[in-house]
Design a protein around this nucleic acid. Sequence first.
DNA 1: CTGTTAGCGCTTTCAG
DNA 2: CTGAAAGCGCTAACAG
Lengths: 346, 346
Amino acid sequence: LIAEPRAAWNDVVKKAPPTTPATISQVASHAGVSRATVSRAFTHPEMLRGETVALVKESARRLRYFPNQIARALSTGRHSNVALVVPDIANPFFPPLIRAAQARADMAGYCVFLGDSNENSTREDVLVGQFAAQVEGLVLVSSRLSKERIHANAQLRSIVLVNRDVKGIPRVLIDTASGIVAAVAHLAELGHRRIAYVGGPAASWSNQQRRQAIHQTARRLGLEIAAIPARLPTFEAGMRAAPLTVASGATAAVAFDDLVAQGLLAGLAECEVEVPRAFSVVGCDDVLSNTTYPRLTTVSGRSAEAGRLAVELLVEALRSRTIREMRCVLDTHLVVGMTTAERKHP
Amino acid sequence: LIAEPRAAWNDVVKKAPPTTPATISQVASHAGVSRATVSRAFTHPEMLRGETVALVKESARRLRYFPNQIARALSTGRHSNVALVVPDIANPFFPPLIRAAQARADMAGYCVFLGDSNENSTREDVLVGQFAAQVEGLVLVSSRLSKERIHANAQLRSIVLVNRDVKGIPRVLIDTASGIVAAVAHLAELGHRRIAYVGGPAASWSNQQRRQAIHQTARRLGLEIAAIPARLPTFEAGMRAAPLTVASGATAAVAFDDLVAQGLLAGLAECEVEVPRAFSVVGCDDVLSNTTYPRLTTVSGRSAEAGRLAVELLVEALRSRTIREMRCVLDTHLVVGMTTAERKHP
DNA sequence: CTGTTAGCGCTTTCAG
DNA sequence: CTGAAAGCGCTAACAG
């Protein structure tokens, strides 16, 4: 996939590998105390006399000692590691989510493993299995796993889902339907009577949710909908959908997500269709407003919040050692940008 | 930072927490063999009679047993975990790198911890310290750490750097200078005589590299350079830099990266400066070509390759238990898009 | 306040 | 081929 690097290698010196870290015993004997005391100096210093702590810490510093987390974990049964699995790190929907999740985990003292399933359920299952052996809990985002596999894994480790609605598993769902409804209403108000929906992956929970919201709202408002499948949620796919979209007779389009919308914009530009003068476009997820111009009219994202919240639920589940039937819905709203305008009446 | 989630909670049932995983002893007694045999069945099945392996595996399956990686790690001293630390997961330069690094690590049987330093060296140092206690090695991308801290950490764990040039530490560098040189030459050819450099973080190795390349090339070609600092590499910063850039008298600009370039484009549009008719813009890293229109003229990215390569070097260092003085340079080239054009002579 | 004593769950010689 | 035994480095009662 990735081209061979045309690289320049300057291979000069060989050095020794990193030194073996000092152990608790070495520090103990160096400081002239027991190993338990050294342990306490690091985990419960309040149990020790201040001088003792200082003595131990000084020895530790000189020996470059720091507690081996693995050994600690084996002993305590806790290691404060969690895993986050996403279908595609590079899809712009996920980085803000990952970032927020990581930040929240960090705040609670957890380190996070990151896994990329590459949109593949088999791979995801392997990843989850691998992680299960070394984390306390995991967050699965837009999981492609079957309900059964999710339940099976949840039996072993605490699991929180994002954008996947499985009963019995704590989950946080971004309800883009609410924003999509607003988007369609917005277009109706602008005078558009026929709207294209440039859809995403058929199997995706999000796509089904959005498609349904659009059709229902259109029916309610007496609008016509032209369905244009884009299959993959990519810029490319959106771009290819442009001619069909124009041909559909619609004067506005709602795209599966911002990536598709942006592609659509590019495609429309190539068809010499001016946006928003001659055609209006609405995206979804608001993941590109910080990188594109003109600002896309889109549905608010909240992916960062979803990530943060998911970790919060996970941490709480770990803390309380209970799993609640919990379904946390984040609603969305329309963010009006510069790609929608009144329908031009010829 | 993140608004409170307006969430709907449906808190219904409480359940038992995930069950405690089975241990090797339970499997051993269930299968009527010793713990050593169970261990071997999983790690060295070739040492056992086929039937014995099958027997053990069957017991394991029924007891839902799988080896505890923590215990295994403590025993063997190896756990095949590495860490990847970046300044900002959400900066579009990093996700492809993270993704490639993760994939490569996975291929070598390593799990990866992800850390986000939030562009902050203190935070980075804490993160690295935390990870150092539980990984075999780390990849630091665009590290904000001082040379001294990097060396100190490298003494403890194998470290590979990306886009940071510290002697003695294996590093992979994306040589954007080569692409930048081509960009400036390209602008010169188009007739531009005064070019603005909208720079990034002062402490960043990449920024220094790009700044220098621009100045040298400009001098060589007899062009003038106007330095406009954007400080943070963000869309916002680029946008704010637009008025200054116009005021500088330049007819073209090279931005620190695509994000800044895209912000600059937005800012220019608001100043009613038409691109590329009245002003040319060049980005760097080629991270937005799949999401924006019109296509930005930019310098090719190779961040995914850098990530993959860095992990490769790390894995190799871990395998061979040696650290080589290694400096791996990936060169770049100019990708001409639609944001550069001939200078309009009034 | 500090030392002693057991393990945590697994791997790995070393014997049979 | 399989079992017994000795830890890996640390924490956590339990005594003093």
